[in-house]
C-alpha cells in the first residue's frame, strides 16, 4: 500500500468522521504538551476524498494538534482507491503497533471488522490475520463488549469489573445493573468473589421471583454496606454470609443450629466435633489433641460425659428444624 507524505490543512480533515476510529476516549492534554515540546513524531494516516480527508489512524494526535492551535499537519495519505476494509486494517495495525489495545478497543475493532464479512469463517480468518487469534468463544465475548452500557465499559477499563462479570451484568435489566455496579465499585471484590456474589444474587432473585435490584436493596444488605464500623474486607465477608443465608435458608439454619448446640457443649479448645460433610455422609467425628497422659484422660472424661448431654443427642440425631 502506498502512502504519500504531505502537509495538509487541519481544517480540510473531517474529524467528525469516526468510521475508522478504534481508540477509546482519553485525555489529550499530556499528548498536546508533548507535541508542543518535541513536535509530531508519528504523522497521522488520513485518506483523501474528493473534497478533503478523513482520519484512518491518529485521532488523538489530530485533536491534540488542533488544541494547540496548529493550522497544518504533516500526514501520510492513503489513496481514495483503497477499500474501506483495507483502511480499517491499516488503522488496526497502526494502533496495535504503537500500543497495547484495551478490551473495549479490541471489541470496537472486531465489531467494525465484522461489518465487512458475512461469512463467519472468513471473518475468523481475518481476525486471526490481525493477531487476535481464532478462539471463537473469546471473539464472541469480545464482540459483545461494545454493546454494554458505558458504565460497564468504564468498569472494564478501570479494572474494577472483569470482562466475564461485565458480560453477565450486561444481561440484567438497567435497574439492576447500577446497584450491582455500585456494590462492586464500593467493595472491589476479587473476580471469584464477584462471581460468587453475582450467582447468589441472581439465584436468590429467581427463587424469590423478585428483581435483582430488590435483592441488592434488601435491608440486610444495605445495613452491611452502610455500617461505618466494617472495613471493606469485613463488608465483603458479611455480604457473602448474608447472601448465602438468603440463597440457602434451610441449610444455613441447620448449620447455625449445629453451631449453637455445639457451643452449648462447652467443649475445651482441644476437642472438636466435626459434622459430616454437607451433613450428607453418615457419621460425626471428633478430634482431640493432647500432649500428656493427664490431658488425654481429661479429654476422655469430657467425651464420656457427652453421652448424657441433651444437646449432643440432638446434634447426632441430625434431625432438622427445617
Amino acid at each position: 500500500m502506498q502512502f504519500e507524505a504531505k502537509t495538509v490543512s487541519i481544517d480540510s480533515i473531517d474529524i467528525e468522521d469516526t468510521s475508522f476510529k478504534i481508540s477509546t476516549p482519553k485525555q489529550i492534554d499530556e499528548l498536546a504538551h508533548s507535541i508542543e515540546r518535541t513536535g509530531l513524531l508519528t504523522p497521522p494516516i488520513i485518506k483523501a476524498l474528493h473534497n478533503g480527508y478523513i482520519i484512518i489512524s491518529g485521532f488523538h494526535r489530530l485533536y491534540a494538534c488542533k488544541k494547540i492551535g496548529w493550522k497544518n499537519i504533516e500526514s501520510r495519505i492513503i489513496s481514495p482507491d483503497v477499500k474501506d476494509v483495507d483502511c480499517l486494517k491499516v488503522a488496526i495495525l497502526d494502533n496495535a503497533y504503537n500500543r497495547q489495545m484495551n478490551l473495549i478497543e479490541k471489541s470496537i475493532v472486531l465489531t467494525k471488522l465484522a461489518s465487512f464479512y458475512s461469512a463467519e469463517d472468513e471473518f475468523i480468518t481475518n481476525v486471526n490475520e490481525i493477531g487476535f487469534g481464532d478462539n471463537l468463544n473469546y471473539i464472541k465475548k469480545l464482540l459483545k463488549l461494545t454493546t454494554l452500557i458505558p458504565e460497564l465499559q468504564h468498569g472494564i477499563l478501570s479494572g474494577v469489573t472483569p470482562m466475564t462479570i461485565a458480560l453477565e451484568i450486561g444481561t440484567y435489566d438497567k435497574e439492576s445493573m447500577f446497584p450491582i455496579l455500585r456494590l462492586f465499585e464500593g467493595l472491589h471484590p476479587t473476580l471469584n468473589q464477584q462471581k460468587e456474589i453475582l450467582t447468589l444474587i441472581r439465584e436468590t432473585s429467581k427463587i424469590r421471583n423478585s428483581s435483582i435490584e430488590n435483592i441488592v436493596k434488601d435491608q440486610q444488605i444495605l445495613d452491611i454496606m452502610n455500617n461505618p464500623d466494617f472495613s471493606r474486607v469485613q463488608k465483603i465477608k458479611e455480604l457473602r454470609v448474608c447472601l448465602h443465608k438468603m440463597r440457602y435458608p434451610h441449610i444455613s439454619r441447620h448449620y447455625d443450629r449445629f453451631n449453637v448446640l455445639t457451643h452449648r457443649l462447652k467443649l475445651p479448645e482441644k476437642i472438636k466435633l466435626i459434622p459430616p460433610e454437607n451433613f450428607e455422609d453418615i457419621g460425626f467425628s471428633m478430634s482431640m489433641k493432647f500432649d500428656s497422659l493427664q490431658e488425654f484422660e481429661s479429654c476422655l472424661k469430657v467425651l464420656t460425659s457427652l453421652s448424657d448431654s441433651l444437646e449432643f443427642k440432638t446434634i447426632i440425631s441430625n434431625d432438622s428444624a427445617a
Binding site: 439465584e203 429467581k206 427463587i207 440463597r247 440457602y248 435458608p249 434451610h250 441449610i251 441447620h254 454437607n278 451433613f279 450428607e280 455422609d281 441430625n318 434431625d319 432438622s320 427445617a322
Partner: peptide, 25 residues
C-alpha cells in the same frame, strides 16, 4: 425454570442433591 436453584449440596457421588434433612422431611 427455577429447579436448579434448590438447596442442593454435593453428594458423596459428586451429584448435586437436596440437603438431606429436606429430602427426609
Amino acid at each position: 425454570v427455577i429447579l436448579p436453584y434448590g438447596e442442593f449440596i454435593k453428594g458423596m457421588d459428586g451429584k448435586m442433591r437436596y440437603f438431606k434433612p429436606l429430602r427426609i422431611q
